[in-house]
Each structure stands twice: as C-alpha cells, then as structure tokens.
Design a protein around this nucleic acid. Structure first.
Length: 305
DNA sequence: GCATCACCTAGAGG
DNA sequence: ACCTCTAGGTGAT
C-alpha cells in the first residue's frame, strides 16, 4: 500500500518521527520500520513524498496512516509558531519533518509509567517483555510480533508476574492502573476535548486521599496528554528538556532557580512547575512540538559527543 | 506548603 | 570482570 504525502502532510520525516523517543515499540530493520500499532503489525518506509507500508492482520487504510502520524497537522504553521529564536530555528531545521504521533492512551500511559527513571533502551526492553508475556502474538514476515497487552490481562496478572518484566517498583503502579482501566473507572478519551489544565487535573486527581493513578505525576501526565490526547500545548519536562531550557533560555529564569537547578540533575517539583510554565508561555499552543524537537536535539547532541 | 530522600533495575561508560 | 553513574520521576516523610 502507498500513501502519497499531500500538501498538508508535508513536510514529514518518518525516521525522525519514529526515532525521536516518543514511541518506544518501533525498530528499523533492513530499511523498513516495524511496529505494532493498535493490534496490527505495521511495516513502513518513506521514499521521498511517498510512504510505502503493509499492515497485518488488518489492511489499514490511508486514513489510519494519516491519523496515526498526525499528517493532518499543519506542520509549517506549527513550526513557524514555535520558531521563536535563533536556537529553535536551528533545532527545527535539523529535524525538519518530525511529527508528534497519535498513540493509544492506554499504551501511552503504561509506557510512560514504566519509563520513569529508566533509559530508553531499558524502557524498550520492559515494554517488549510485557508484550511478549501478556500480549497476543502475531506472525508476520517470518518474525513474531506482539500486540500490547490489554488492561484486562495486566489486571489479572498481579505484581509478581509483572515483576518478571523488570518493572521493579513500577509493578504495583502498572497493576493498579490496569485495574482502573479494566473495570472502566477510567475514560481517558473524555480528556481529549477539554482544556489542558482541566485534563491534567483529572489525570492527577486524588480519590479518598490517594492518587487515582499511582505512578502518574506531572511528567507522565504531560506525556499522556501530548502523545495520546491531542493536547499539543502540553510541555513535559524531563532531564533533557530541563538541560535544554537551562542552556538556551537562562535569561527567562530566576537567577536563584537557575543556580540551584543547574547543580542538581533531577527535577524538583518546583523546577518542574517553573520550566513547564515557561515552555508553555514561551512556545504557545504548540509547546509540545517544541518540547519534542528540543528533547531529540539534546539526546542526539549528547550521543554525538 | 516545601524541600529532601529512598526506590527497583539495568544500560552505558570507565 | 567490576564498579560507578545515570536514567524521559514519583511518593513518602
């Protein structure tokens, strides 16, 4: 199957989009990207203004491709909005065509709960282990792929079985969250068409004195809002984005905070609030796009050194 | 409020 | 082989 990149879908760069760290279940082999999306294996590559793809077992159409890769976003307009200074111009130019992907809320939520305090290779290992153990197997192209496990299966699993997948202290978080999902206490899709603040407050809500979703703090909430619930103004702050803001935008921060923050590698909740609100104010309605370009830029730069 | 600290584990780098 | 540092933070104190 083929998808022609029409004018709205341009620019698009498949490699940047799948390699930038927002999705963790894709891998490139022999010129093709392989991933499991929504229970289907997808094999895809880009050839100039064209996407060539196969999906199995369902034959997913162009509408699906367009929706998943956010090819309906007016990227030139978005990039012009976040292009606020020379540094951003450079970052945007470097990764021109990177798009935010529309992930499934459930998979996105579990992925980022698992991602806390882990490096990306380790996160990919965890998600693969969870899928192998609890997900449905799908044979394709002579390989075996695994769908992401359903809430119901993880809710039945229990923390001991989850721990086999190297979740460590995250096991009870994943287990509890799966239970909330399985008994339909949660409807993340209802957070799509309300404002960012309201949606975030509901994700972080407390019930009976404890968290609705254990393991979900500000960072995880912002990732879920940005990557799966269409809140492009969310601005997740992790150690890389913190470094980026401290290095490129020190003049916008209180000198005291700057001084303290640069001495500490992790992020305090106060620092999170300050950097998050700077990002949202400075970059505006598409701050989430700015965040992803900055994140990828910082990681690539560190890898090159 | 608010700052500090423990936490499971494993990849990356020396 | 072995050790240290760090990792897309969160929850408890």
């Amino acid at each position: 199957m083929e998808f022609m990149l029409h004018s709205v879908a341009t620019p698009f760069n498949l490699d940047y989009t799948l390699d930038c760290g927002q999705v963790l279940r894709w891998g490139k082999r022999g010129g093709w990207w392989y991933g499991v999306v929504d229970g289907n294996v997808m094999k895809i590559r880009q050839s100039g203004g064209k996407l060539i793809y196969h999906t199995y077992p369902e034959r997913l159409d162009g509408m699906f491709i367009e929706h998943y890769f956010r090819l309906d976003d007016d990227l030139p307009r978005i990039l012009s909005k976040i292009n606020r200074d020379e540094k951003m111009a450079q970052v945007i130019h470097r990764f021109h065509g990177l798009r935010i992907v529309r992930q499934k809320p459930w998979e996105c939520l579990i992925s980022y709960i698992c991602a806390t305090y882990k490096n990306i290779p380790a996160i990919k290992d965890i998600l693969l282990a969870l899928s192998r153990k609890f997900g449905r197997g799908i044979k394709f192209d002579g390989n075996r792929f695994y769908a992401f496990p359903t809430p119901h299966v993880l809710a039945k699993a229990g923390t001991n079985e989850l721990n086999v997948c190297k979740l460590g202290y995250r096991s009870p978080y994943v287990f509890e969250t799966a239970r909330r999902f399985a008994c339909a206490e949660l409807d993340l899709d209802s957070l799509r068409n309300i404002g960012y603040e309201e949606a975030k407050a509901r994700l972080l809500a407390q019930t009976c004195g404890h968290k609705l979703l254990p393991g979900v703090g500000e960072k995880v909430a912002d990732c879920v809002l940005l990557f799966s619930l269409d809140h492009l103004d969310a601005f997740p702050v992790d150690v890389w984005v913190k470094r980026a803001v401290l290095e490129f935008y020190p003049q916008y921060l209180d000198p005291m905070l700057l001084e303290k923050a640069s001495r500490r590698k992790s992020i305090t909740s106060h620092e999170y609030a300050v950097i998050n609100s700077f990002g949202r104010r400075y970059f505006g309605e598409y701050a989430g796009y700015a965040q992803q370009y900055l994140f990828y830029y910082m990681r690539e730069r560190s890898r090159e050194r």
